[in-house]
Amino acid sequence: MSEETIVDEAPSAYPTPDVKPDRTGARAGTTSWLRRARARGVPAQLLQPSLVLAVLVLVVVVLWALFPGTFAPHDPYARELTDKLAAPSPDHPFGTDNLGRDYLSRFIYGSRTTLVAALLALAIGFTVSVLIGLPAGYLGGVIDEIVGRLIDIFLAVPGLLISLMLVTSIGFGTVNIAVAVGAGSIATFTRVLRAEVLRVRRSDFVTSAVHCGVRWPTVLRRHILPHAIGPMIALAALEFGTALLSISALSFLGFGAPPPTPEWGSLVSDGRAYLAYAWWLTTLPGLAIVLVVVSANRVGTFVERIR
């Protein structure tokens, strides 16, 4: 009896008339959960397997950063000297280091510092470029000339090099590398924003607002920023991966937090000394970083495309 009711209700659970059973059946290659999601009306462009995978990776990493204690199998600082430089095993998926610390736990705890630093870097790049690019693009004239040439100069030098120069002068530490990486991305953000502002500035509705007596700071906030911000957000999504990579690189070079605090870059760096007989200490965190950066880029390109 109850079985029958379930069968009866099944079609109404997927209330999409135009997805006919025979058409869904034709997509034989897709897994069943994808098919179910499609039937529930989730837009097809959200359901590309690579995108779903990328989002999954990022969600896991963000959860690690938020609740490292819940996910880490061991204490990241606990030394187990009897078990040092152990190869990957079910108990220690990333193996252990020369002090017998569980490397996966250290990686999970390291995701917090690294992600926070990347977000901070993005926030700095984004905010500063809005403060510079918006008035420069709108007001034009000498200010715009100066900003434009400065962008050209900064873009001529690799961002990482700028960050490196900055971090050596302002000192070491996680916040400092975040500031340095953020500063290195200002030029990229400003260039995009300025171009957008130049485009929106010519719109009739902006001319109209000016003619209606609206003062320029209000015009910027009300009419120009909302229309110019779209490409910036797409760029921020793409830049997130780059920022992660730059921060890991600076931390690898030893500019990050002092030991024993785990950071992704320093974890790779720490394992370098044992590369000959403990390959996992560099390779596994390295691959994990690559996976996260690629996932961030995948999501970034998606954001850029749907904008």
């Binding site: 509705f205 109209s208 607002a209 209606c212 007596g213 609206v214 229309h227």
Partner: peptide
């Protein structure tokens, strides 16, 4: 199609000169 800011509603658009002045 280009002289009205697509992000504002009609009330905001019509009141813009009053706001501006």
């Amino acid at each position: 199609y280009s002289s009205l800011d697509p992000r504002l509603d009609v009330a905001e658009i019509v009141a813009e000169p009053l706001h501006g002045f």
